[in-house]
Amino acid sequence: MSDASDTCCHRILELYSGIGGMHCAWNSAGIKGKVVVAVDINTVANEVYQSNFPDTNIFNRNIQSLTSDEINGLKVDTILMSPPCQPFTRNGKLLDENDTRANSFLYLIKILEKLKNIKYILMENVKGFENSTVRDIFIKKIQQCNFNYQEFLICPTTVGIPNSRCRYYCIAKINHSPWHFKRKDEIMQCLPKQYDEPFTLDEILEVDVSDKFLLKDKFLKRGNILDICYRDCRRSCCFTKAYSHYLEGTGSVVTEANRDIVQKCYELANNTEVGSDEFIKALKGIKLRFFTPKEILLLMAFPKNYVFPDTITLKQCYRLLGNSVNVKVISELIKILFE
């Protein structure tokens, strides 16, 4: 780290703060600094954030209500943010800059030149953002404001986390010091250092999990599309906000049974009609279940002492996690940003 990073106590503005993944990443990075204000319009996310970071000031506001004078008054030098991803997804109809959910980020881009104290920016978004018009607007603006920047498309598996969640990241700093790696004009697909291979799921899976997480018949009847994980797996699929509500493309399920038993159960099931009572009965023996919120938190590299308050429902937990970020990836990017 540079001398500046070692001696300076940075002041951070966390925008679209959600449940505090960026805050967790900052703490994990070990850089001196303080999240001065976190801003999010989601009251449920703010409740979770506050329970884990009771000393952080949270603004439950639309980001477009923040003026440049107000931000300057906070004397923050760093912005960490994860703007809404829906404008850049198929489910969001790929409306890009024409999606009203992009308005707050476009507003931030517009006022960036008025934010006199900002020296560091880290932004996360969904894979696909890199092909958007909003991305082009953002990059053009940070160039105009004399920021050096580097874009990444990073999956947690590349930093030792057994979960697929490829996301776009951009780190930028005011043009006063060089990067400590070879910057590329193209988007980088990995970080500048090497990491160990992903750990096994056994490290994060709970024991004696409640039966309420077992897949109900309505899900088992579609058991032919499940992505099944085991304790010795070093992978899992991306968990979305629809996890446990829909099956396809929302995340993996897990079983304590070994692969031979699972194969035999599926052989029995496949000798029946998919979705039939016999099909469901054949799969019940392997006790397929959803990952618990605690397990997903650990897969997303949240600290072990991170908790959801008892007031938050299971459905809300999954929705909040699906909208959150991978703490490990962002922590490593923060380290690179402040080298």
Rank of each mutant, 00 (worst) to 15 (best):
Asp3Gln: 14
Ala4Gly: 00
Ser5Gln: 09
Ile12Glu: 07
Ile12His: 06
Leu13Val: 01
Ser17Gly: 06
Gly18Leu: 03
Met22Cys: 09
Ala25Thr: 05
Trp26Pro: 00
Gln50Ala: 14
Phe53Met: 04
Thr56Pro: 00
Thr56Trp: 01
Asp77Ala: 04
Asn91Ile: 11
Asn91Trp: 02
Asn98Ser: 12
Leu106Lys: 14
Tyr107Met: 10
Lys110Gly: 12
Lys110Ile: 03
Asn117Tyr: 15
Phe138Thr: 09
Cys155Pro: 00
Pro162Thr: 11
Asn163Trp: 03
Trp179Asp: 02
Lys182Asn: 14
Met188Tyr: 08
Cys190Ile: 12
Phe199Trp: 08
Ile204Cys: 14
Phe219Lys: 06
Leu226Pro: 01
Ile228Ala: 09
Cys229Pro: 01
Arg234Asp: 13
Thr250Glu: 11
Glu256Ala: 13
Ala257Pro: 10
Asn258Tyr: 07
Cys265Thr: 07
Leu268Arg: 10
Asn270Glu: 08
Glu273Phe: 11
Val274His: 03
Asp277Met: 08
Glu278Met: 06
Ile280Asp: 09
Ile286Lys: 09
Leu288Val: 12
Leu288Tyr: 06
Thr292Ser: 10
Ala301Tyr: 05
Phe302Leu: 01
Pro303Phe: 01
Ile312Trp: 10
Thr313Arg: 06
Leu321Pro: 01
Leu321Cys: 02
Ile330Val: 12
Ser331Leu: 06
Leu337Phe: 05
Phe338Ser: 02
Glu339Lys: 15
